[in-house]
Every structure is written in C-alpha cells, then in structure tokens.
C-alpha cells in the first residue's frame, strides 16, 4: 500500500484515503488492480508493437526487408536514416508545421475570445443568432471547392498566409468557449462595470484568466487539427518549401514508395522531436485538452 500512496501523480487528489479503507476492500481492490493491469497491458501491446516494428524495419536493408519483413534486424544499420535525411527536407517541414500551427492557433484564440464573450453574455442583439450560426457550422458541408476558388482569387494560393487563413475558425472551439464563459457568474461583469473597468480590460484581465482551462482545451484541439491536416496542403501548397510534415511525408512515401525501411527511418526521425516535445508539454497538452471540455 505504501507504494501506491507514494505515486507521484498529478491527477490524484484522493490517494491517501486508500489507507483508511477496510481490509476486505483492499483485497478486492488488489484483484481488481491485477485485472486492470492485464487489460491495460493488452492495449499497450498494440501501441508499443507498431513502434517496435517501425524501429526494427528502419534498421534493415531493403533486401533484408523483402526477404523477411517482420524478422529481427540481423545486421542493424543506420544507413536508412542518413539516406532519408538527405532525400527530404525534414527540418523545413517541421518548421513549417510549427509556424502554421502556432500562428493559426494564436489568431484563432484571440479573435474567438472576443466573439465568445459578448455572445455568451448576450450583449448583442442577435447574440443567439450568432451562436446558432456557429452551431450550424459544426455540420456545414466541407467547403473544399469554393474555399479553393476564394483563396485562388485572393491571390493567396500556394502562400503561407493563404494556408493559415484556412485554419482561423473552429466551431467546436467557439462552442466550448461560449459554454465555459456562461458558467462564470455575471455579477463579475456588474461589479467590474461599477468599478469603471473598460470592456477590453475586463475581457483580457479578468475573463481571460478565469477561462484559461477552456482556452487551453480549445488551443490544444485546434493545434492538433492543424498539425494533422493532410488534404488542405495537398490542394493549397505546391511549393515544397511550404510543405508541412504531413504533406512532406506523404510525398516522400509516394516517391520512395517501395522502400519501407527508408520510410520507417523517415517516420522515426519525424516522430522523435514531436515525442520529445510532447514529453515536456504533455502536462499542458493533456491538462489543456481536458480542463475546459468537462465543464459547462
């Protein structure tokens, strides 16, 4: 039991309480725990195995791979990594993805904050209508085709700005923000107004800190969406220097399509920085994803 209580868990406010439980419960809970571990491990296998498979494949030569795709690499070599590194401009792709994700997310969050707040409060005539408009947007048809014509006519085809423009909205994000703001007591507005606070000061200084969990959730959801987008870069970006990772990788796969060891090496090289970044930021990412999503 002492081991359990020493868990360095961030999401575990009730840990010490376990000590106070009666013995029969403890025995049962131990059985339950073993069962839990079994189930979790079965799941884990399907998350670890593909990773192992990727590493193993990346260490093989193409001929070895063709002879025995799944066998353990007998003469592991890093040749695939150097080759893949030379063939594709992965650092550029990573930089592009980071730029798109960061700038589109920042702009989206800033602009939607000032839409969400007055709508949630009903400060406008037709606030309800605007909110409905966003709810409808959840279900709107994928507007690939007119969007393409729009970007083309704005002269923003195959430009970074044009590409980012496509990611400046997110109806789900807006709805999460509105719902969260609704849970903040309106008396706050009244007292602030009485104190003579201006609208902007109030929204940025008081509301923003209060709805930070929701903002975090929306930020993460939105950023993941951009980071993973595959189709829009296919349509809008033709210059390789603008490719995000997703597009760069699928082009790499198309061009070196048969060479699985090379592709595996490329995938691993792209994964590594993402994973390291994720390890550092995971408290914020996972925390952010959840904090705002469960309230309201």
């Amino acid at each position: 039991m002492t081991q359990t209580t020493r868990m360095s868990e961030d999401l575990n406010p009730e840990a010490p309480r376990a000590l106070a439980e009666p013995k029969s419960v403890t025995v049962r809970s131990r059985q339950l725990k073993i069962l839990s571990y079994i189930v979790l491990s079965i799941f884990a296998v399907f998350y670890i195995w593909p990773l192992y498979m990727l590493i193993n494949t990346s260490l093989k030569s193409f001929t070895d791979y063709l002879r025995d795709p799944a066998g353990v690499a007998t003469e592991p070599s890093l040749a695939n990594f150097t080759e893949a590194w030379e063939l594709a401009n992965f650092p550029q792709y990573m930089t592009n993805s980071a730029i798109y994700t960061a700038s589109a997310t920042i702009i989206f969050v800033l602009t939607s904050l000032f839409v969400a707040f007055p709508i949630a409060r009903g400060y406008f005539r037709g606030s309800g209508a605007i909110l409905t408009m966003y709810v409808v947007a959840l279900f709107l048809p994928p507007a690939l085709i007119p969007q393409f014509q729009l970007i083309l006519n704005l002269g923003l085809y195959n430009t970074r700005i044009g590409f980012i423009l496509l990611f400046l909205i997110n109806p789900i994000g807006m709805i999460i923000l509105v719902n969260y703001i609704k849970s903040i007591p309106k008396e706050l507005d009244e007292s602030a107004a009485v104190d003579g606070a201006s609208y902007i000061t109030f929204v940025t200084r008081i509301i923003f800190p209060l709805i930070r969990p929701a903002v975090a959730t929306v930020t993460v959801l939105h950023a993941i969406g951009i980071w993973n987008e595959l189709i829009l870069p296919t349509i809008y970006l033709t210059n390789e220097d603008y490719f995000p990772i997703t597009r760069g990788l699928i082009v790499f796969e198309g061009v070196y399509g048969s060479n699985w060891p090379g592709i595996a090496a490329a995938v691993l090289m792209l994964m590594l920085p993402i994973l390291i970044l994720f390890m550092f930021l995971q408290r914020y990412i996972i925390g952010g994803l959840t904090a705002g999503a469960v309230k309201g």
Partner: peptide, 14 residues
C-alpha cells in the same frame, strides 16, 4: 500527436 500520415504508415507496416 503523430498525425494521420504516420498512423497510416505504421499500420500499413503492421
């Protein structure tokens, strides 16, 4: 966080 392309490549291999 790995994204759809890497997910797809991993499973094609798997």
């Amino acid at each position: 966080i790995l994204g759809v392309v890497i997910q797809g490549l991993m499973w094609k291999l798997f």
